[in-house]
Amino acid sequence: MADISGLVIVSTIIFLIAPAFIIVYIFVYNQRKKRHILEKQQMQLTFASELTKTQLEVQEQTMQTIGADLHDNIGQLLSLTSLTLNSIELDNKAKARQKIDDSIDLTLRSIKEMRLLGHLLQGDQLVAVGLVEAIRQLVSWMERSGRFEIIYTAGDEIAANRNADKDLIIFRITQEVFNNIIKHAAATEITVDLDYAEGALELRIADNGVGFAADEAPPARHGMGLQNIRKRAGIIGGEAAIASNVGQGTQIIVSIPYP
């Protein structure tokens, strides 16, 4: 008699432990799930704030470029036009004709410069023009200085698969790499490749500039810094590889899952 009652009681206790275990397990799992959700929300917030920051940086960079261009280039051209027009002597028709022609030429150059600046502003509107076109505007602006020979190639597939957030960050990285080239590389040739294959976008920018020892810490003067380029690529799940040697130029490869 004691045997069967003992057996039933022990078995019942075991059968009660099972649901208790299930409930505790669900509790623990739910806590982890909540932590994971919070971490995800935090990451989304960080991503959103980085995007806003990048958007502002892109705008700031564009405005700085436009400001400098207006002052150094278009401003000079228009001043020269004004001086030329002022110096026209209506009595001397032949000379006046020459000066008017010079003024027309200067005005046309100003218009051309203004158009390029306009394109640069369009490049800022990434959503409207797309990454391929935005980088093309950036390349056109770089080329017009006459200091660089730039070869730009972009895959056709990229336009069909777009991700506006990632485009913005890639554009900002490109902008900053160009900035570094202008300021520090002393390069004459630049190659820009934008390729899309198997769900990944690869941006390769190579120059023939002075380079630096990639094994050592890069010089602090390198603008927003190579670390920041890596960090930005990391935010969108990608990575940036930087290869450089003193006197052998620099190559930056940014690979990003896309779209």
């Binding site: 039933v8 019942t12 649901p19």
Partner: peptide
């Protein structure tokens, strides 16, 4: 669950 699982025995 406690009641029905526990009363299984």
């Amino acid at each position: 669950l406690f009641f029905f699982f526990g009363s299984t025995v």
